[in-house]
C-alpha cells in the first residue's frame, strides 16, 4: 500500500514540477493566442469594443482569400526574407571568417561589429531614409559629385530600388547577428581535423568546403531560424523608410497588419491576417529545423 502510494507520488512528481511552466505557458502563450484567434472570427474594431461579441465565423478568412493586397504583401515578405537572410548569411560568414583569422584586436572588432545591433530599428529606418533621400541624401549627392550620374535616383520610390534600400538597411542592422553566431562556431571548432586535412594536402577552399562549412551548418541554421522569425515581423524600418509604399511596392505583412489593425481599427481582420502570416513563420522554422537536424546528423552529432 505504502509502496503503491510512493510509486504514484514518484509518477506525479514530474507533472507537479512541470505545473508552474505549464501554468505560465497557459496564461502567457495559450490564452492570448486563443483570444486573438477568437477575435479573428469576429468583426472586432478597437474603437467599438462591443463588436467582439459578434461571431461571424470564417468571414474574415474568406475575405482574406480574395484580398490581392494581402497576398501581394505575403509573397513580397517571402521574397524579402529569402534575399535578406541569404545576404546576411554570406556577409556574416565572410566577416566571421576574417575576424577569426585575426591574432590582434579581435575582441575590439567583435565589439565594434555589434554596434549596429544596438540601434533601435526606428533609428536605423530614419538613418537610411536620409541616406537614400533622392534630393538631400548622401548616396545621390556622392554619386552626383563623383560624376556617376546626373539625375536624382529615386531610391525609395522605384519598384526595385525601394525594396533594395530597405534590404540594405535590414542587412546593415542584422548581419552582425550572423557574424557573432558563426564566429562562436568557428571559435568552438576543433583544430585537429583542419590540421589533418592540411597534412593530407588540402588547399584552403577544400578545408573550408569539407570541414569548416559542415561544422558551421548547425550554427547557420540556428541563426537562420532566429532571423527568419525576426525578418518575417519586419515593421519599424519599412514603416519609417517607405510606409509600405509607394503604391504598396514595399508593403510587407506587418506594415499591412498594423494599418488594418490600428489605423483602420479593424483588429478582427488584422488578427485573421496575422494567423495566416504565422503559417509563414512556422513553415520557415520547420524548414530550418529539419536542415539543422540533417546538418547535425552529417556531423555525427546527437539528434
Amino acid at each position: 500500500m505504502l509502496r503503491a502510494l510512493r510509486a504514484r507520488q514518484t509518477a506525479l512528481a514530474p507533472l507537479v514540477l512541470l505545473l508552474p511552466a505549464f501554468t505560465v505557458m497557459l496564461f502567457v502563450v495559450a490564452l492570448p493566442l486563443a483570444f486573438s484567434f477568437y477575435t479573428s472570427l469576429t468583426p472586432y474594431r478597437l474603437i467599438r469594443p462591443e463588436t467582439i461579441e459578434i461571431f461571424i465565423g470564417a468571414r474574415n478568412y474568406v475575405r482574406l482569400w480574395d484580398n490581392p493586397v494581402f497576398w501581394a504583401a505575403f509573397w513580397r515578405t517571402i521574397l524579402f526574407l529569402a534575399i535578406a537572410l541569404n545576404v546576411e548569411l554570406l556577409l556574416g560568414l565572410g566577416i566571421a571568417l576574417l575576424i577569426n583569422r585575426l591574432t590582434w584586436g579581435q575582441r575590439t572588432l567583435r565589439t565594434i561589429m555589434m554596434f549596429p545591433m544596438m540601434f533601435s530599428p526606428i533609428l536605423v529606418g530614419f538613418q537610411f531614409k536620409f541616406i537614400f533621400n533622392d534630393n538631400i541624401g548622401i548616396v545621390n549627392n556622392a554619386l552626383q559629385a563623383l560624376g556617376l550620374t546626373d539625375r536624382a535616383i529615386p531610391w525609395l520610390v522605384d519598384a526595385q530600388l525601394a525594396m533594395f534600400s530597405i534590404i540594405v538597411a535590414e542587412v546593415w542592422m542584422s548581419t552582425s547577428i550572423f557574424a557573432i553566431l558563426l564566429l562562436a562556431g568557428l571559435l568552438a571548432m576543433p583544430r585537429d581535423p583542419i590540421e589533418a586535412a592540411r597534412v593530407d594536402g588540402c588547399n584552403s577552399w577544400q578545408v573550408f568546403r569539407h570541414i569548416t562549412l559542415p561544422f558551421l551548418m548547425p550554427f547557420i541554421f540556428i541563426a537562420m531560424t532566429i532571423r527568419s522569425l525576426d525578418v518575417a515581423r519586419a515593421y519599424d524600418i519599412v514603416h519609417v523608410m517607405t510606409g509600405g509604399g509607394p503604391a504598396g511596392r514595399t508593403e510587407l505583412l506587418w506594415t499591412l497588419l498594423a494599418r488594418v489593425g490600428y489605423d483602420n481599427a479593424r483588429m478582427g481582420e488584422a488578427n485573421a491576417m496575422a494567423y495566416v502570416s504565422t503559417l509563414l513563420s512556422i513553415a520557415f522554422t520547420v524548414f530550418f529545423f529539419r536542415k539543422l537536424m540533417a546538418a547535425r546528423r552529417y556531423m555525427g552529432g546527437a539528434e
Binding site: N135, A152, I153, G245, P246
Partner: peptide
C-alpha cells in the same frame, strides 16, 4: 518635383524648401 515625393512627409517638404532647392 523631387523624384522621392511619393515617399515625402511634412519634414521632407519643410527641410527641402529650407535647403533653397
Amino acid at each position: 518635383v523631387p523624384a522621392g515625393v511619393p515617399n515625402y512627409l511634412w519634414d521632407d517638404t519643410g527641410l527641402g524648401f529650407a535647403s533653397g532647392s
